[in-house]
């Protein structure tokens, strides 16, 4: 962190940057800030290849620009480093389970390009304790991983409920989880998505449950710097295109065939008639490139987090609006 800040301070003089898209094109690769390792969201596999939900978002942007999802350089970032890395221009895009909050946009010069995962802070407890709600944790010891708004949400919730609890804060998620497993804590709290991933690391995952109650709104999304509207639009519409593709039934398997579809919405989305890419600095077939590379939103979700993954997270709030979820993308037209 310190090295980053110092290097950043020293480099500040050499600014005068062209547009982010021009930089990316000149470099021949997108530099994407990702999690240092979170199963389902961003983790290198046994061949060192990055995989996950957030990773696929980086690949989608790279595919839109280069027609090649491999043209991404991944920069693993901790919770503390991530914003400095983005502000300083070390990365072009932050795709790392980051919560959209007011202060991050109003105070830190960041812009969230949308919500790609609706999460909420939840609690993992021992089944044997037979706890029903957060209120039952009165007086308990709770292990927390530092690096998010987790500690704040926790303190707020207990204050609202008028009960007290001990919070034990760890730098690393693994240490916090180990302390919980050893019995030091009665509960372990972090974003629900991460709890599902961390539960798999316990020696007896079956003995632990995740309380259904969530205590915060954690809308995750890709983040860019303020001051480059064109780049912001490109990332935002990559996200919307993934959602629209799912809504219209466009998948990695059928996208080529659907270019000849008669449905007007699909024809527009895939650039069969008019050019909707130019305004973003992209070619006409930008959505075809994206979907061919990573599939639509639903495919990304199921492959990394849902039924096609070990996590088996239900779609829940992350379903399309027609299916009772919150995802509702503006149309391409």
């Amino acid at each position: 962190m310190l090295v980053r800040v110092i290097a950043f301070s020293l480099l500040l003089g050499l600014s005068a940057r062209a547009g982010t898209l021009d930089d990316v094109l000149a470099r021949g690769a997108l530099v994407c800030g990702v999690n240092t390792g979170l199963a389902g969201f961003g983790l290198p596999d046994n061949r060192g290849e990055w995989r996950g939900f957030d990773i696929d978002y980086c690949r989608a942007v790279a595919a839109a620009i280069f027609d090649d999802p491999q043209k991404v350089r991944f920069t693993p970032l901790s919770g503390k480093d991530r914003f400095t890395a983005l502000q300083s221009g070390e990365i072009d895009l932050l795709s790392r389970n980051t919560t959209w909050t007011q202060s991050r946009e109003a105070g830190q010069g960041l812009l969230f390009a949308g919500v790609n995962y609706f999460d909420g802070q939840a609690f993992m407890v021992r089944k044997a304790r037979n706890l029903k709600s957060v209120r039952d944790l009165k007086g308990a010891s709770i292990c927390v991983q530092q690096g998010t708004t987790t500690e704040l949400n926790l303190a707020d919730t207990f204050r609202k409920l008028g009960i007290s609890a001990e919070t034990v804060v760890f730098t690393g998620g693994d240490e916090a989880l180990k302390a919980y497993e050893s019995g030091r804590c009665d509960a372990y709290t972090t974003d629900g998505s991460a709890l599902y991933a961390q539960r798999l690391k316990l020696s007896a995952p079956g003995e632990h449950e995740i309380l259904g109650e969530t205590i915060s709104k954690e809308p995750f999304g890709p983040v860019v710097r303020q001051g480059d509207d064109r780049w912001f639009n490109l990332v935002k519409w990559t996200h919307f295109a993934l959602l629209d593709a799912e809504e219209l039934g466009v998948t990695a398997a059928n996208v080529e065939r659907l270019r000849q579809s008669d449905t007007p919405e699909i024809r527009r989305l895939l650039g069969a008639d008019n050019d909707f890419g130019a305004g973003l600095g992209l070619p006409k077939d930008w959505v075809v490139r994206i979907v061919k590379a990573v599939g639509n939103y639903g495919e990304i979700f199921e492959r990394n987090l849902g039924q096609g993954s070990p996590l088996k997270i239900p779609r829940g709030l992350n379903a399309q609006w027609r299916d009772g979820g919150l995802h509702y993308a503006p149309p391409v037209r």
């Binding site: 962190m1 800040v5 301070s9 919770g79 503390k80 914003f83 400095t84 202060s103 991050r104 105070g107 830190q108 530092q146 690096g147 998010t148 708004t149 500690e151 704040l152 804060v169 730098t171």
Partner: peptide, 11 residues
């Protein structure tokens, strides 16, 4: 560290 995370005041 917690303060840094909450405020974004890294420097």
């Amino acid at each position: 560290g917690t303060i840094l995370n909450q405020t974004g005041a890294a420097l």
